[in-house]
Amino acid sequence: MEEQKTCPYCGTFLDKQGKHYSCSFCVMALRQDEVQTGHQRLPVRRLTTVLDVHLSKTTPELMKLSTFELLGLLKLARKERREMYELLQTFRQINAADKKAGMKEEEQFSGSCYQAITRKVFVLENLLRQRLGYVPRQVTAEALDTYLEHIEKDKTGPMIIRSSHCRKQESS
């Protein structure tokens, strides 16, 4: 017999309604991939490695990433933006010093790359602002390690209310 489906937010048993499940306590519909069994909580999705290729993802794709992944990407994007700004400044200085240097195209290309990575930084900052309530000033390796430690020490036990324990307390 299949174990009864439970809400990942409150642990209540769910009612199946077509393709979705319904939680009477949370008053919400849940997709099959959100539903848990045994009163378990939603697992925390995280990668320990974030690659710069993830920076090419669209905003809807970025929205699906975990907060940890977004923090790692923000760190990478800010570094890339800083490097692109320095390159842009170098081309500007070369072109200002020598009008015949012919590096205008390189300056324009660097400028467009700088604008693109700056916009990606804005997207990542705003996604994190939605989740955390603020935009991190700086994302350090230590901050990411601390974040991972908090994930590892997170509450993972089932969400069960023990009614026999409640009755004992009431009779005392």
Rank of each mutant, 00 (worst) to 15 (best):
K5S: 07
C7M: 04
C7I: 06
Y9D: 06
C10S: 06
T12Y: 12
F13D: 11
L14M: 07
L14T: 05
D15T: 15
K16R: 14
K19W: 05
K19E: 12
C23R: 04
V27H: 15
V27M: 13
M28K: 15
A29T: 09
L30S: 10
R31W: 09
Q36E: 07
H39P: 03
Q40R: 14
Q40H: 10
Q40Y: 05
R41H: 12
L42K: 10
P43I: 08
R45D: 09
T48L: 13
T49G: 00
V53H: 12
H54A: 15
H54S: 13
L55A: 03
K57M: 15
K64S: 11
L65A: 02
S66G: 08
F68I: 05
E69T: 12
L70F: 01
L70T: 01
L73D: 00
L74S: 02
K75T: 02
L76Q: 04
K79Q: 11
K79S: 10
E80F: 02
L87I: 12
F91T: 03
R92Q: 15
I94C: 00
A96L: 07
A97T: 07
G102S: 03
E105N: 06
E105L: 06
Q108T: 12
Y114H: 09
Y114M: 05
Q115F: 07
T118C: 03
R119M: 05
K120A: 02
K120H: 01
K120P: 01
V121S: 00
F122H: 10
L124K: 02
L124P: 00
E125G: 01
N126Q: 13
N126R: 10
L128H: 02
R129K: 12
R129P: 00
R131Q: 04
L132W: 06
V135K: 01
P136N: 03
V139A: 03
A141I: 06
E142V: 14
E142S: 14
L144F: 04
D145H: 08
T146Q: 15
Y147Q: 03
Y147K: 02
L148F: 10
E149A: 11
I151C: 02
E152R: 11
K155P: 07
K155H: 13
K155E: 15
K155A: 13
P158C: 09
I161G: 08
S163F: 13
R167V: 10
K168T: 05
Q169G: 04
Q169V: 15
E170C: 05
E170A: 12
S171W: 09
